[in-house]
Amino acid sequence: MVDINLSEAEKRYIIDGVKLGIRADGRGPLDYRELELETGVLDTANGSARVRLHRTDILVTVKMELEPPLPGRPNHGKLLFFVNCSANAAPEFEGRGGEELASRLSSVLERLYSDANAFNTAGLVVVPGKYVKAFYVDVEVLECGGNLFDVVSLGVKSALYATRTPRITITGEDGGELEFTLSDNPYDVDRLDVTNAPILITHLRISEGITIVDPTIEEEQCAPVSVVVGVAPNATICAVHLLGPGTIGPHTLKKALKGSAVLGAEIHARLIAKLKQEESIPDRRIRGFLG
């Protein structure tokens, strides 16, 4: 991903530390860092979220558009993912430099949300067969400092949770074309159901039998292979991706999967609690990038 140079001795220090059960920043192997989360940061989007985890900064925006449905799916809305790795994050991302990472991220997200159990697109219809709601989820990577996949998935779920679209009512018909109006009451909105939306947990394989979650950018340099596990809120595993050039033993993989399910359910509960708490604040002041 992003290059930082560590010497062999520095890598050895981190790896040996993990083997002894303590990481360079004092965490245990399955400890997650504190993350900052704010929704509603952009006025121009239907939903948005900014997530910061140490040195990783992600901005997710959701915008709704009315579009004709996909062929053969007249009663299903669309959910589309686009990732852009900003050159702010690393000069290597300039121009087309970030495209490889961006397409890998968007394809993982697309597959994660493609299942009807994860996110149901069935109800997102305005005129069956003619107009459905298309939700464009745009992920902007503003800083890239380790554990990117987890942060992106948390940002996407938060932004979808915070998405509010004006209620659309069909008012009449004019020459075969249906007319519809958008409600301009800010409280008369439709929301998306993200109760089953999964998140990603990355396990970095340090050595056989030992994996760590929420790796820092330095730790990511020490090990080539990581397992990205998609976990639903009910602690079921819905996706597994093996990233990086390297090998992983079956028992290490099984252990990682088992750990992810428990950890994932806990993070889901914490995330929803945080989002509900944020929502309950009346006239919440948006801190945005100034906070």
């Binding site: 121009t44 901005l59 464009y136 902007e140």
Partner: peptide, 9 residues
């Protein structure tokens, strides 16, 4: 290099 967020306007 200037770039824009997809939902900026």
């Amino acid at each position: 290099a200037v770039s824009r967020v997809a939902a900026c306007s």
